[in-house]
Design a protein around this nucleic acid. Structure first.
Length: 317
DNA sequence: CAAGACTCCTGACGGC
DNA sequence: TGCCGTCAGGAGTCTT
């Protein structure tokens, strides 16, 4: 077992935050962010900011002075909710550098604004940390907080994005159901599967079909359900749908209990601790290693353009 | 609706 | 040793 965990560690180079990792991040950031004010924002890589588009100055201006009133998660997105009321700016400063009046109001003494939300997607390699890394090389954005703390956004691959929006649904509105929600029943999954004819693997990766699953947990869920990644969605029996439904939830809940999957040298959790789910992976990045159930070597193929790991014995087509 | 290609990026890795 | 081509991976977009 230890040997296996070590082997996986060697093979995993990159953080790919999925639902359990994002949920862990939100839970751990929450006590450090909620009830603080964002004093300033600094952006080192402009394309990190997806909205307002190509206007980092406006992003920083609109976020400054906002109070963090809550946090949440939708799929793989981190949500940070900001109050509508910003503290009054220094009038002298305002007069000098920014004569623009407050939005929708002619009274410069009042700064009642629309509430906003920061919506963050970490994509491949994004990290939200409360302490800086040794090198600023991959630091893309920094938020200074009223209590002296800072929130750092690091992202080696530059795929991560941050939106500042009035309504998070502008970004997350198209997402499918939350797999851990009570309303996501086996019947709900069945109803969605029946309408589709594609292969299971790409379907489960499609965030509009179900929100929050990525390559790791799709492979793990399909293994646990004994279903081949290329199985066609509308051919599943009722029993198989039931099995898939519980497999998805078990896999996600186990990863959540272990605070997600952490990779060599890269921290997932905001305070730097590692997750432990890499030790619980049964097929992901285990090609060539014996299946934990039957001993057959795990295979790797490409399905829908994605690296895919499965046991040919336990998951027959 | 399905499926594939292409794009964005970087760093690791293999070949020579 | 060092250079260079290739690849992975989430998701949006475009094409077939």
């Amino acid at each position: 077992m230890e040997e296996r965990a070590g082997e996986i560690g060697k093979r995993l180079k990159i953080v790919m935050p999925e639902l359990p990792e994002v949920e862990t991040i939100v839970r751990e950031l929450c006590p450090h962010l909620v009830d603080r004010t964002i004093v300033s924002a600094q952006v080192a890589w402009e394309r990190t900011i997806a909205q307002p588009k190509e206007d980092v100055a406006r992003f920083c201006a609109e976020i400054r002075g906002r109070h963090i009133i809550g946090m949440g998660r939708r799929g793989k997105f981190v949500l940070i909710h900001l109050s509508g009321t910003a503290p009054r700016e220094n009038p002298a400063q305002r007069g000098l550098s920014n004569p623009r009046p407050g939005p929708g109001s002619g009274d410069p003494d009042r700064a009642d604004l629309d509430p906003l939300s920061l919506v963050i997607h970490l994509r491949m390699s994004g990290q939200l940390l409360l302490a800086p890394l040794g090198s600023p090389q991959h630091r893309r954005a920094t938020f200074a907080l009223s209590d002296g703390g800072r929130l750092y956004f690091y992202d080696q691959r530059k795929f991560g994005r941050i939106w500042l929006v009035r309504d998070p649904s502008e970004v997350v509105g198209g997402l499918g159901p939350e797999p851990l929600a009570e309303t996501f029943t086996a019947q709900a999954l069945q109803a969605r599967l029946r309408k589709r004819r594609g292969m299971l693997k790409p379907l489960l990766l499609d965030q509009r079909f179900i929100a929050g699953l990525g390559n790791i947990y799709v492979d793990e869920s399909l293994f646990r359900a004994g279903l081949h990644p290329q199985r066609t969605a509308d051919t599943l029996t009722d029993a198989q749908i039931l099995h898939l439904h519980s497999a998805i939830r078990e896999v996600l809940n186990q990863a959540l209990d272990r605070h997600g999957t952490t990779f060599d040298g890269i921290f997932v959790r905001p305070e730097g601790e590692r997750g432990r789910q890499q030790e619980g992976l049964q097929v992901y990045k285990q090609d060539g290693l014996p299946c934990v159930r039957c001993g057959t070597p795990i295979q790797r193929t490409v399905v829908g353009g994605r690296g895919t790991h499965f046991c040919p014995q336990c998951q027959p087509l």
